[in-house]
Structure formats: C-alpha cells, structure tokens
Design a protein around this nucleic acid. Structure first.
Lengths: 226, 226
DNA sequence: CGACGGGTTGAGCCAGCTCAATGGGCGTGG
DNA sequence: CCACGCCCATTGAGCTGGCTCAACCCGTCG
C-alpha cells in the first residue's frame, strides 16, 4: 500500500470538496469527466436506468472509493454516479494525476488494485443479485457493508450506519421496496439484525454470514484489525 | 492500442498452448497462479459454486481475454476459471510480464484497458441477471456474444458460433436449463433467432437488441468494422 | 396544518421453479 | 452392424417467491 509520503503527495493535489444531495447525480451516464473523483463522505452508487424507468444499482461507493478512474482509458461513463445520502466528493485534476502516476508507481499500483477490488465486488454482486433468495441477498449485503465500512474505520462493535431507504436497498438487490420490507422483517424476527434508527446492529456476525452465504475473501482486504 | 512491434514482443514470451476439456478447470478458486493466462480458442468462464452446488457463471471468456491478470495485485483467485467448450490457453511467465510492462508502457495500458472492459461487462451482467426477464436476458446475451465475437473476427453476417449447452446458458443467466429451453423457443417463435446446429443466426439485429434492451456502449469497442 | 416521502401491511397474480418423463444424437463395445 | 448408455434437449403439471396494486400510518418540513 501507500506510505505516508505518497499520501501527502495525494493530499496536495486534491481540490475543494463537492457536496451532492441524495438523489442527485455527481456524474451522468455518457459523460467524459476530465478529472478524477472519489467519495469522502456519505454513500453513492453506480447505476443504470432501465427502459421502464427502474434504477439498477450496480455498485456501492463508500468513503475512499473512486468514481471514474476508468474514464481515461474507456472514454465515457457507461453508467451514472448518484448520491444515496448527503455526500461529498473530492476531485483531482487529470493532468496532475498523469504526472503523479508517472513519477510514483506505487500510487498507480494502489489505484489499479482499487479497480480490481471494485471488479471483484461486482462479480460477487452478479452472484448475489442473480442467484440468492431475497433473505440471503440482504444478509450478504449487510455483511459486505460491515466489512467495507470497518475497513475504512466507519464501523465497529457489530454496529454500522445503514442510512439507505428500502427503495435504495431494493435497487441494489433487484427487488421491490415492499419486498425489502418483508424480508428485513424476517431477518429481524430471526434476530440476525437489529435496527436502531439509521444504524444496524449485527448481534451474531457468524450467523448472518451463514444466512447470506458470505465469505469476505472476494473483498481482498489487507490483513488488518478485525 | 498496440502497434506491431508491441505485438511481436508479446508473441515472443508466450509459451506453448494448454488444452482444457469442457467441464474442466484451468484454474480453481483460491489458487495463486504465478503466470498469466489468456484464452486463444474456445470459450471459458469465471464461475463460483454456491453452497447448494449450483454454478454461478459471472463472466464469459472468449478468445483474446485474460484469465488472471488481476492475481498479481489481489493475491489469489476469488473464483474459478473453467472451460465451457474444448479450449486452449496460453501462458506468459510472470517475470517476463513484469519486465515487459516496465519497458513498454503501451502494453500495460492495453492490459489495464482489458481489465476495465471486463469490469464494465460485469456491471452490465449485474443488470442483466438481476433485472431483466428471461427473454430479455437471453436476447441481451446473444447480442453481447455477437459483438464480442465479431470484434475478434469470429462472427460475421448475422451468424456466430453458440456451442453452449442450455445448462451453461442457465448458469450464466441464473435460470434453470428447463427455462432456457422454453425461452429460446419463444425467441425462435418470434423469429428473433434461428438455430442451426451450434451456430446461431440473428435475422434482424435491431429487433433482437430492442427485445434485450441491448446497447453496445458498455463494451467500449474500438470503432472498427461493423 | 397540509403535503410529502418513507415505512408497513393485506390480497391476489404470475414468471420461473421443481419434479418427472420422453426422445434424439453419438460414441463405445460386443 | 447393432445395442447400450450417456448427455442433452424437450415437454407436461403443479408450486411458490417475489410482484403489483392499494391502503394506511407516521414523522418532517414548509
């Protein structure tokens, strides 16, 4: 990973934060942003709109995740980036990125690694969304959320922020909000999750992981705390 | 993209081909292959096995696609690579790759681009597998197949090889082979596809694309023939 | 205090599933 | 040359998870 000097280099070229309200887009599909964006606060998503108007969320962006690193080589966004909660992004000018990458290969490698983990998560979503029952899907999603938030210091002690509407959850899993409601009810009844406002508690992680067929290997987290 | 000199450099470090029979694995989940593999003939897939034994295919590998470029940074395979038909792979020694990448940045860029397209396709699969009806799913898959095969010179004139069993198709789409059967029947009845042995014909591409909500933008193909 | 954006609950429907049986193509061995 | 076995495609019949439609409730905000 990066050392402190690398982090300092990055900090210098980051511009002022951009705030985006829930439901608004940071970047719409088809656009070719010149600069690179990443999320620093809140939660956003990659999504596509279907012909009948439904929104398909294909990835969740949590603090630290890049939004559009791939645009330099792919040329245009094949999906939109939208805010799910109040969130803030930072921008790095493309020219500066190019220069940094040429000079400090460790940073480029860290970026490529982030892209590869993003792809690995997307593969797991294909499985989640395509094969598992709604109960497994939700359980799996909550496990993923806990691990990912924990890895950036936003979750501990079996608690984590879960500020998504049932509608947003449905759009992540390909089910209706009505069905999210009933399914969360079942998870609650089984004691697998406890809702406390916009926080979620996982009393017994092992049980939830089993219920959701969750194995964190695909997240490729660096061995850390936990 | 690469110039002829780059291509020549690549050719030199490629080792003898590896043949794999349908149903066999080139690389099993959890392994850490030292060398890089790519497919030169036939069709393979990335897949994961679910606890109940079902196989979830999360990506299709066609001639020219890399299998495990990501292992250097991610450390281990989070899925298996299996052959769907008789196919052959080539191997490039890891050490040679590292050297080439350092010396010829254009090659590294082409590899990263391939990874990014792979990721873009996976995102579209999340949509396909999670949201669309079985009829749309199949139509979409056939459109993708046609474009991808065409881009490597393996499909023209509305015809392309489609050697997959209904079981394999079901594992790509998350539906049962019985349902694949009935759905293909419906596509046939509507005249959207014509089966000729292991070839598929698409009489009217526009109609199939509409039926499958297919837009090739996500494939990020270089403007070429077609 | 009215409107609005969520969450909650009920009732009926249907796409895709399961289970089950049949048929056809092809390689293998007698 | 035929018989057998195997794998895959095909077809029927009944079941069910998740959907749609439709209320109603509650907290928040102008």
């Amino acid at each position: 990973m990066l050392d402190d000097a690398d982090r300092e280099r990055l900090r210098k070229i980051v511009s002022h934060p951009i705030a985006v309200e829930p439901g608004r887009d940071l970047i719409p599909e088809g656009k070719t942003p010149r600069d690179i964006h990443f999320i620093t606060e809140g939660a956003a998503c990659r999504y596509k709109i279907l012909p009948d108007g439904r929104r398909a969320i294909v990835a969740l962006l949590l603090p630290g995740d890049f939004c559009d690193l791939h645009v330099d080589l792919l040329g245009h966004m094949d999906h939109s980036i939208g805010a799910l909660t109040d969130c803030t992004f930072s921008r790095v000018a493309a020219a500066e990125v190019d220069e940094i990458l040429l000079t400090y290969p460790a940073i480029g490698q860290a970026c490529r690694r982030a892209e590869l983990v993003d792809a690995a998560i997307t593969r797991e979503w294909v499985v989640n969304v395509g094969r598992r029952s709604s109960e497994q899907q939700l359980a799996h999603l909550f496990c993923e959320l806990y691990f990912r938030l924990n890895s950036v210091g936003l979750a501990q002690d079996h608690h984590f922020p879960m500020p998504f509407t049932q509608n947003a959850l449905g759009d992540m899993l390909g089910i209706t909000s009505v069905h999210v409601q009933r399914t969360m009810g079942r998870l609650r009844d089984k004691g697998l999750i406890v809702q406390q406002g916009r926080q979620l508690q996982i009393p017994d992680f092992e049980r939830l992981a089993t219920a959701g067929d969750f194995d964190p290997a695909y997240l490729h987290l660096h061995p850390r705390h936990l």
